[in-house]
Simulated assay, not measured.
Amino acid sequence: MPIPPTTYAEDLELLRASAVAAGIIASGFFRREVKSWNKENASPVSEADILVDRYLANALLQARPTYGWLSEETADNPSRLDCERVFVVDPIDGTRGFLRGEDSWTVCLAVVEDGVAVAGVVYAPMRDELYEATRDGGARLNGKPIQRRRRPGSPPVIPAAGAVHQHLQDAGLNYTRGPYYPSLAYRLVQVATGKLDAVASRRGSQDWDIAAATVILDECGMDVADVCSGFPQFNRRDVRHGALAALADMSLKPLLHAALIEVYGCPADEALTAEPTSTDERI
Rank of each mutant, 00 (worst) to 15 (best):
H241L: 04
P5L: 09
G172E: 12
L247I: 10
A271G: 09
V88D: 08
S43Y: 15
V263E: 12
Y180F: 14
Y8F: 15
G120E: 07
D128F: 03
E132Y: 07
D103E: 13
R236C: 09
L51G: 06
S205R: 11
A160Y: 15
P152K: 08
Q206R: 11
I50S: 15
E84T: 13
E129S: 00
P267C: 01
D209M: 15
G265I: 05
Q147K: 15
K195N: 13
L70T: 00
G68S: 15
R140M: 06
G138D: 05
T277Y: 04
S251Q: 15
P156F: 05
E13Y: 04
V52I: 09
G23C: 10
H241V: 05
D223Y: 11
P78M: 05
D76A: 09
L252E: 12
V34W: 01
A163N: 11
T95P: 07
S183M: 12
G221V: 00
K253Y: 09
G178R: 04
G28R: 04
P276D: 09
T214D: 11
W105G: 09
D223L: 06
R187K: 11
G265E: 04
Y67Q: 03
R31I: 04
D49W: 00
L260C: 00
D207L: 02
V191E: 10
R96N: 01
T134K: 12
P156E: 08
A133V: 02
G137C: 02
I158P: 06
D209R: 11
T193V: 13
V224S: 00
A192H: 02
P91C: 08
P125V: 03
A246C: 01
V189I: 08
C228W: 04
A213R: 00
D249F: 02
G178K: 05
V34M: 04
A160F: 05
A21H: 12
V52Q: 13
R64K: 08
A21Q: 10
T279V: 13
S79M: 12
K195G: 05
D170L: 10
L256T: 08
L168K: 11
D197S: 07
G68D: 13
R151L: 14
T106I: 03
G230A: 07
D269R: 07
R149D: 09
A171R: 06
G153L: 03
D82P: 10
E72M: 03
A163Q: 10
V112A: 14
R187T: 14
D103V: 06
W208G: 01
E102F: 12
S18Q: 11
V107F: 03
P78S: 08
P182R: 00
G172D: 08
E13K: 02
K144N: 10
D218E: 15
D11M: 07
Q147P: 11
T106K: 05
G194Y: 06
Y55N: 06
D53S: 10
F98I: 07
